[in-house]
């Protein structure tokens, strides 16, 4: 193995993350390493800290203690630089039905951070947007206002927005919650392809049916820390999450 491949894309060691104004941290002493092209599934009960973990990785939330390096940058003071290189599909979103942006504009917004101030979209930006829209199969929606699409369609737009960014890492927070089973398979396929192309995928999900048919690295969270982190066959994932999340389970 080359040393290059061994250097992790995400490296968290003993991090603590608290919400502003709260004293007790939600993430407590968590450590995690993720490499290029890895596909990781994150499970665990509601309130375990999965969303908080994702937002610690891309620096939206403030890490109070510990070390966090993502894409070779210190998240604690280079958050916006990290976010230019890390996709994040958020868990909860609602758009005003009258929001004045078309699907295409929303997907383009995925590249705004990368473009930086005072720049207009270039031909390269346009191509990236076209590609992402094509990949997600939402070409026929591209001129529609995002506010009047169905929840599942909106979710696909947000995924496309993050693909358009050409990220090195994709964080997805329950991206299947609004998708029908065909779309779930479709999106899972895309995530697989992205992982094969070298993007690290961190997928928080409670949907275990459509996992790729191979061994998967499974991380289970409980009470703000990781209680299980191992590779297991996809058909065992659901049982493993269930077992690892049960109170009193032996920590791995």
């Amino acid at each position: 193995m080359q040393p290059e491949a061994k250097k992790p894309l995400i490296s968290l060691s003993g991090i603590y993350t608290a919400y502003e104004g709260d004293h007790a941290p939600v993430i407590r002493g968590l450590s995690l390493e993720i490499h290029k092209g890895e596909f990781i599934m994150v499970g665990g009960p509601n309130g375990a800290g999965k969303t908080t973990l994702l937002e610690s990785i891309n620096g939206l939330l403030k890490i109070t203690h510990g070390h966090a390096t993502v894409c070779g940058l210190d998240v604690r003071n280079k958050g916006h630089e990290v976010r230019k290189r890390v996709g994040y599909v958020i868990q909860n979103f609602t758009f005003d039905p009258l929001t004045p942006f078309s699907v295409k504009e929303v997907v383009m917004m995925g590249r705004y951070g990368k473009m930086g101030f005072f720049r207009r979209p270039s031909a390269e930006d346009q191509q990236a947007v076209e590609r992402a829209i094509g990949m997600m199969g939402i070409k026929e929606l591209e001129d529609r206002p995002i506010g009047i699409l169905s929840g599942g369609q909106q979710q696909k737009v947000l995924i496309a927005q993050n693909i358009a960014r050409d990220p090195e890492i994709m964080l997805l927070d329950e991206p299947f919650s609004n998708l029908d089973f065909l779309s779930r398979e479709f999106v899972m396929d895309i995530l697989e392809k992205l992982a094969e192309s070298g993007i690290a995928i961190v997928l928080v999900s409670h949907a275990f049916d459509d996992l790729p048919d191979r061994d998967i690295r499974l991380v289970v969270m409980k009470d703000g820390d990781i209680c299980f982190d191992r590779t297991c066959p996809s058909e065992h994932v659901e049982a493993t999450v269930r077992e690892a999340s049960t109170p009193g389970a032996i920590h791995a």
Binding site: H80, R83, M109, G110, Y112, G113, L158, R165
Partner: peptide, 8 residues
């Protein structure tokens, strides 16, 4: 979402 795309 704006913030998560790296916009300052």
């Amino acid at each position: 979402i704006a913030e998560s795309t790296g916009i300052r």
